[in-house]
Computed example of a mutant assay.
Amino acid sequence: MRAAGCALAVLLSAVGCSAPGPAPDAATGAVQQLLDRRATAVLQHDTDGYAAAVDPAASALRAAQRTELGNLAQVPLTSWTYKVTALDRHGATATAKVELGYRIRGYDTAPVTTARTLTLHQRGTNWYVTGDRPAEGGAQLLWQQGPVTVVRGTHSLILGVGQDPVKLHGIAATEDAAVPAVSAAWPGTWAGRVVVLVPGSLDAMAALLDAPAASYRGIAAVTTGEAGGAGAAPADRVIVNPDAYAVLGDLGRTVVLTHETTHVATRAHTSAATPMWLSEGYADWVGYRRSGRTAPQAAPELQKAVRAGDLPAALPSDADFGFEGGADRLARAYEGGWLACRMIAARWGETKLARLYLEVGAQHHREGALEKALTDQLGLTAGEFTTQWREYVRTQLT
């Protein structure tokens, strides 16, 4: 088999079975060993061992690293690893691209990963870290913002920085109610437990997402995760915006965390084929499912538009869920998606709604996926479904 594979390479690329390339720089292995020792120190809460990886001359960085490890003291880690993916060496200095992976005991079935960029300096035969920052497009980690307070719920783990523990216990109670509510609505198998991050401010939340704070000013919570992730995918994280969450009443907080928990439960069945009106609308439908809220109460912005004679001509597009169009447009998109899912549940049943979601998400490409699922599950073309939805919106909101 090895010879056949080599022959095929000759035919396809005319490269042939060439000799191996140059051996990798020995510094890569040395740096990897340094980081392996550093990872062990994290799991053993060995502050001296963790700081020992830092250049002795970088006293400020050493102090910061000691503080960072102390911030992690309450977090129940079950693994912590570094993987050097690239090393650019120039004499006694080097820049390494590193993948940091960690798991929280009882919650993560696979490592949550984040890309870091490390700068290093060689002293004698030893390498030391001189800088540690998020890779381009990467985000800050919660424990880099301050000491993490951990609150354990029945179905949840709440990790907060700069937050009153009483507030964190309140979030745990709301999340513990959200998990069974989601399980009662969603027929798919999921972990049934959620990690919630509660940073100290909107700006701190934005740093965790590597995004402008203005984008999340009115958003009470978001969920991070890999769409279409299977059982080996890292668990999602629900990140709370403490500023927006604080102004919500009990019902609003319940709806928000149930919505985000629905994203956690459905993530493995959400793919590039899933339109946002379905993924966001379904999460809102679960959130409002047992709330008793009427359509006008839950869709005030869309009701204003309908009463003004602006009945939407089509289901919300993915672009409608962006921040660029303003808060009103975004609210109407969520409300329109919710009403679409509410209509399906009312006319065809909750099981059909879930099956529609599952069938769409099982596809890898958008084209034709929703149309086929609508025909298979509801017996409607996309045009017929849109017509029924528009009439449903009109009758529910006028």
Rank of each mutant, 00 (worst) to 15 (best):
V84E: 03
T130D: 10
A96N: 10
A86S: 09
L72S: 05
T85H: 00
P111Y: 11
T67H: 08
S79M: 04
G101V: 06
V148L: 07
L69N: 11
G137F: 00
A110C: 09
T81H: 02
T85M: 01
P76K: 04
G106D: 11
T93Q: 12
K97I: 01
S79R: 00
V98N: 05
G146L: 02
L120H: 15
R66G: 14
A96P: 08
Q65T: 13
L118V: 13
A86M: 00
L87Q: 08
V151N: 03
Y102D: 13
V112N: 12
A73E: 03
T149E: 05
R133W: 04
G106P: 09
G124N: 05
W143T: 07
R105H: 14
Y107I: 11
K97N: 15
T119F: 03
Q74R: 13
D132M: 02
T81V: 00
V150W: 02
V98H: 12
T85W: 01
Y82R: 01
P134M: 04
G106Y: 08
G124E: 07
E99H: 05
A96G: 11
H121K: 13
A115G: 09
L142M: 01
A115N: 07
V75S: 13
L87S: 03
W127Y: 09
L100W: 06
T67V: 08
